[in-house]
Design a protein around this nucleic acid. Structure first.
Lengths: 130, 130
DNA sequence: TTCGTTGCAAATGTTTTGCACCTGA
DNA sequence: TCAGGTGCAAAACATTTGCAACGAA
């Protein structure tokens, strides 16, 4: 059922670029940076590969709602914080909150498979510097 | 600091329309329905009012990431479930999970003010009917 | 009168897609 | 060889915005 993947230099490059970045870049930022290695790569290819990689679970897509989606090369379970002032997206080091799935299941007739949680507020810099 | 609001029939109509719907319509759906009462209303006005109402906390904006944002006339704290099959958005009746803010704060140097959590899986209909 | 609100249309920003060519298996 | 991948450009979408006219206070 799942389609056969073929090796692609571009896709590998996108994947390894994301592995080096921890600031959750947008598709456009990925595009601009990949151009160093592939001057002719197109934005469409970047979008196609980002969609593909997040479908097969090799990267994570972060949809905040303000502007463009962001992408994270880290796939281990973790949550994100978004600063309402500078809009930085930061990985949170926190205990698992997977138990909220149980809480949600308690009075629900369908099947809850997973959740996504985003935290908002002010990052360290924006908290101290007014 | 906060701007002075003036009464607007259109805005009232949008607000009361949302109060009657529990299926989390998109801006376009709101637009189409408000047209019954205001045949000349423009989509821009609908967007402007939805943005305004959600800013002042009279409605809730739901950004899932697939397609258009959705809007909820209910502002009491509650969480949403999105069916991965039929894409329905359902209100969850569940115990508060506000304690996850504490969990997130434990090892974080900024200020965590709030969170948003979405649950995914199959709704009742899509779980039973294959 | 004042200033927020509206309708309309054009513009913006993000993402997707059709198509002919390229490339890995 | 051949199905998947790519580059390019156009299209699709969702949402925002400039502007002149309108309407509530």
């Amino acid at each position: 059922m799942s389609r056969t993947l073929k090796f692609s230099r571009q896709r590998e490059s996108i994947k390894s670029f994301l592995a080096t970045r921890h600031d959750h870049p947008t598709a456009d930022t990925v595009y601009i940076n990949i151009k160093d290695q592939f001057p002719n790569i197109s934005l469409g290819t970047v979008y196609r590969n980002l969609a593909l990689l997040s479908e097969i679970g090799e990267i994570t897509k972060i949809t905040i709602g303000d502007g463009a989606d962001r992408f994270d090369g880290a796939v281990h379970p973790h949550n994100h914080f978004i600063c309402r002032n500078c809009h930085k997206v930061i990985d949170l080091k926190m205990d698992s909150i997977d138990h909220i799935n149980e809480i949600a299941r308690k009075d629900f007739s369908g099947t809850i498979e997973k959740h996504v949680a985003y935290f908002f507020g002010l990052c360290e810099d924006c908290t101290t510097k007014p």
